[in-house]
């Protein structure tokens, strides 16, 4: 009994407008990044298909040492950071849900206090300075190593695991570590998956602390900091050395198109994770109504 009513048309039309609003700016950048530098003038802001298709901009971007180093650093920080974060968040959630643990309440109180009380950037910066962590990648890998919000998600999940399972394991002589590795972790694969995605997106997108703590060490900048320098602050100067040499090899260079290509490169990992993100985060809203 499919029929097209006026409501359907209006709803569809408004949603189409929202979709264009969400996607057009990104598709235009994609088109710009895929347009040959010589043809950029022909492309308008409204286009979503490239003119004179070419991968030259990506060739430039991916042979620029700052960007390549940025990509490498971002992958390193994300891999290390996510591994540490997920392991310690799961361990802490497990420990804090052991009801008989002495000091449990105190620690939970501490985490909530930490969640609502933000000291601001200067005291945090000064602590990093005192510990001689400025300029070290550990300053940002350890930052938000355990995110209290994600810790609470994990704890809520562990709390729901029936106590009878725990008791049975204890009778079998399992120690707490065996219990975590053999019983709790396998039972909460989906929750662990969710916080892994949260941490991965956060790590990949992080630019602010990295920009401050690593400001004196451009060689250690993650991609987002390099992008900020190049695209947002429009600092083409610091990249020029590399680009100058390249433009002698490749002929013309167009900075707008290069910036577009850099932005797209910065999005790629997120877009790769996007299908998994959707499966995990959409709370069943995808399946929709059956009415």
């Amino acid at each position: 009994m499919k029929k097209i009513t006026l409501t359907n048309i209006v709803v569809g039309f408004i949603l189409m407008l929202f979709m264009i609003y969400a996607l057009q700016p990104i598709l235009n950048l994609l088109a710009l990044s895929l347009t040959h530098p010589d043809s950029v003038q022909e492309l308008t802001g409204l286009d979503i298909f490239p003119k004179n298709l070419s991968l030259l901009n990506y060739k430039f971007i991916l042979s620029n040492p700052s960007i390549v180093r940025g990509i490498f650093n971002s992958i390193l920080y994300t891999a290390l950071g996510v591994t540490l974060s997920v392991s310690f968040t799961v361990i802490t959630a497990f420990v804090l849900t052991r009801k008989k643990l002495i000091g449990r309440k105190l620690f939970i109180l501490l985490t909530i206090f930490v969640m609502v009380f933000e000291p601001g950037i200067v005291p945090e910066y000064l602590v990093m300075k005192d510990f001689h962590l400025l300029g070290s990648m550990w300053s940002i890998i350890l930052y938000k190593m355990v995110n209290v919000y994600y810790l609470i998600i994990m704890m809520r999940f562990f709390e729901e695991i029936p106590e009878s399972i725990e008791e049975a394991a204890l009778i079998d002589g399992a120690n707490p570590i065996q219990m975590l590795v053999k019983i709790f972790a396998p039972m909460s694969k989906s929750s662990i998956g969710t916080i892994t995605l949260f941490y991965a997106v956060y790590r990949w997108n992080e630019y602010f602390r990295s920009g401050i703590y690593l400001s004196s060490q451009p060689g250690k900048w993650p991609l987002q900091v390099v992008l900020r320098q190049f695209v947002v602050l429009d600092d083409t100067q610091s990249m020029v050395g590399g680009f100058d040499a390249m433009s002698q090899v490749y002929g013309s260079v167009n900075f707008e198109a290069l910036q577009a290509a850099a932005i797209i490169v910065g999005m790629v990992p997120i877009l790769m994770l996007y299908p998994i993100i959707l499966r995990n985060f959409t709370k069943g809203t995808f399946e929709g109504s059956s009415k």
């Binding site: 979709m19 950048l29 947002v232 932005i263 993100i277 809203t285």
Partner: peptide
């Protein structure tokens, strides 16, 4: 619709600023 509307949320603010500067 859902896939399209959710994408921007996962981009970093650096990238969003880049997109909007161009837009």
């Amino acid at each position: 619709v859902q896939i399209s509307l959710y994408i921007p949320h996962f981009l970093s603010w650096v990238i969003i600023a880049g997109v909007w500067i161009s837009f």
